[in-house]
Amino acid sequence: MSEDFLSQEEIDALLGEKKEEKEEEKIAPLDFSKLEHVKKGGVPGLDLLFEKWLKIYGEEIRRLIPQVAMVSKETVFITRFQSFMSKIPMPASYSIASMKPLKENFLLVLDSRLVFVIISVLFGGPAKPFKVEGREFTRLELKIIRSVVELTLETFESVWKNIYPVELELKGIELNPTLARIASGNEKVIVVECSMDIEGYEAPFFFCFPQSMFMPIRDIIFSESFLTEKDPIWDAQLRKKVLKTKVKLTLELARKKLRMGDILNWKVGDKINLEVSKKDLFRLYVEETPKFLVRLGKVKDKYAALISKFISGDGNGRRGKEPGRDSRTEGENTGGEAKG
């Protein structure tokens, strides 16, 4: 009886259906370099600096755009430059600026929504971005963008004045992101995301700094100690300690090269002629470091040195020749020196 029934395989064969062979899934290795890593925080000094800047900028931007209700800082994070640029909608304004004496450039990015809302309210329209359909900014829009950027950089420079004096310069405004590359794609950047509230509509703008840009002043950017208030009592105590600190002073009259054979032949009563005069300038050392140029003198019955000028150089007084010194007093760091 069972032979009168067809098996499932025979039914599939009659209907022309074939079982699909499952392809083995290929497992690809994970490329960690392509993973996006966003690190929030970690730059408390820069965070506090922007908080201080926003108070100044909020007042100044309202003079240019009265409809601005508030400017706020959303977040500070560290990411890769390529990842940051890929998330900016087009069109956008990329302002390249330098911060001398720091070497690298940074970006000030104005989102297209912010630009078109500013343009709308300035010409009497509502605080809503209008459709742009991928077009570029017009000359009038670029002029307004430049005014906003220049004001932003001017106020940002003023905040640095008492922290680390810098000079900001606008290098140019680009609309093509490929022309606004301030770092390689995989290089880490510090992004400060801000927003501007214009009659209830919030639109973003960004500061983008290469992380390596702040390495010379990392103690300022990556800590918050520079904005802490000074304790006047602690300052007074420190001043007293410094003024009571004892240091060793050494006046160098001359340096002379002498042969070791001549030194071995010295006898009691031999004289060394230093060949110096009252008109010469001499080095005054503070703890083995030359700090002053002085002239010889006498006060009552004691010899004295009159400080003529500070020794300039690389910070420790050891570089370069000082004006007014005779070549015989310069000397060299070789053996057989006579130091008075």
Rank of each mutant, 00 (worst) to 15 (best):
K100W: 02
T75Q: 14
M85P: 08
K34T: 07
F205Y: 12
Y303D: 10
L142F: 02
P91H: 09
D231M: 06
L122V: 03
K257S: 09
S86L: 04
K128A: 08
E154T: 08
Y57A: 04
E141C: 04
S212N: 15
E252W: 03
I311V: 14
S158E: 15
G261H: 04
P126H: 07
K19V: 14
A13C: 00
N265D: 10
F84A: 04
D47A: 14
H37V: 15
S277T: 15
E193M: 11
L110M: 03
N316G: 11
L175V: 05
E202A: 06
T334P: 00
V117R: 01
S72L: 07
L249C: 10
E24P: 01
L14Q: 08
L264P: 03
G172M: 11
E337W: 11
K40S: 05
N186P: 01
G315S: 07
K291E: 11
T152D: 06
G58A: 05
G320K: 03
T250W: 03
L281A: 07
Q82F: 02
R328T: 07
A203I: 10
K291P: 01
L46H: 05
L15T: 14
K143G: 15
L296C: 02
E229S: 09
V149Y: 01
C208N: 05
S33G: 02
D197H: 04
G16N: 06
M1E: 08
S212W: 11
R146M: 01
M260I: 12
Y303I: 13
V132G: 02
I144Q: 00
I182N: 10
K256V: 04
F282S: 12
E23P: 02
I307L: 14
N105K: 05
T329I: 13
I78K: 15
I190Y: 07
L140A: 15
G124E: 05
E133L: 11
L306K: 13
E229A: 11
S120R: 06
K278D: 12
D280W: 01
Y57H: 08
I263Y: 06
L243E: 15
S308W: 10
F123K: 13
